[in-house]
């Protein structure tokens, strides 16, 4: 072993160190914990700080996930069927908009959703939905039953994994379909 300080820029091609090529740790014994590693003052507090921070964030996420899991996700027909049990409970209802949305006297948004053969009237008092919201779209409304009407505070437009190009030809195609359905 040499006493010279190690200078990488003019290191010999010959191994300065006894380092195996496969990346294995140096040292004579199979115990991979070199003594000087054990000598080193260990920054234990740093380890705990990192793990602690992650645990906090994980805990937050877990709480969110669990509390939101209690916000049931029901289709219109299920929501209607369970109306009595869902008294006062906030949940999410999924359905397709089947009539033209209109504004009520109190500024709320009124429309009807349907799923599985059942319909429900929605009175939406929350933020305006995204501009994808229109007749024929699937929506997820969060709110609660207020008598026979579903009072919603959030209406999100759910879109499927079907992506359709928007080009001029398509308009004719759709009109044809509509004509066929009507006729």
């Amino acid at each position: 072993m040499t006493d010279r300080p190690i200078d990488p820029s003019n290191a010999d091609p010959v191994d300065e160190f006894d380092l195996p090529d496969d990346g294995a740790w140096p040292g004579p014994s199979l115990d991979l914990t070199p003594a000087e590693y054990l000598d080193r003052p260990r920054r234990r507090w740093r380890n705990w700080a990192i793990m602690g921070a992650l645990a906090l964030v994980a805990g937050f996420v877990l709480v969110q996930a669990l509390t939101n899991a209690r916000v049931f996700f029901l289709n219109v027909d299920e929501a209607v069927a369970q109306r009595a049990e869902l008294e006062g409970e906030t949940f999410r209802m999924q359905g397709t908009v089947v009539d033209e949305p209109r504004t009520g006297a109190d500024g709320s948004l009124l429309f009807t959703v349907a799923f599985g053969g059942e319909e429900a009237q929605i009175r939406h008092i929350g933020d305006e939905p995204s501009n994808l919201f229109e007749l024929g779209e699937a929506v997820v409304a969060e709110g609660r039953w207020d008598g026979e009407v579903f009072l919603s505070t959030q209406v999100l437009v759910k879109h499927s994994e079907e992506y359709v190009e928007d080009n001029p030809d398509r308009v004719d195609y759709e009109l044809e379909d509509t004509a066929e359905d009507a006729g």
């Binding site: 072993m1 006493d3 190690i6 160190f17 006894d18 380092l19 990346g23 740790w25 140096p26 040292g27 004579p28 014994s29 115990d31 070199p34 003594a35 000087e36 590693y37």
Partner: peptide, 24 residues
């Protein structure tokens, strides 16, 4: 690895060939 090997080398040099790691 170089850091460890360097330290190991110093240790061997200090004790004239004895291998502290193994003996301890």
């Amino acid at each position: 690895r170089i850091g460890f090997e360097r330290a190991l080398a110093e240790r061997r040099g200090d004790l004239g060939g004895g291998r502290v790691g193994e003996e301890a």
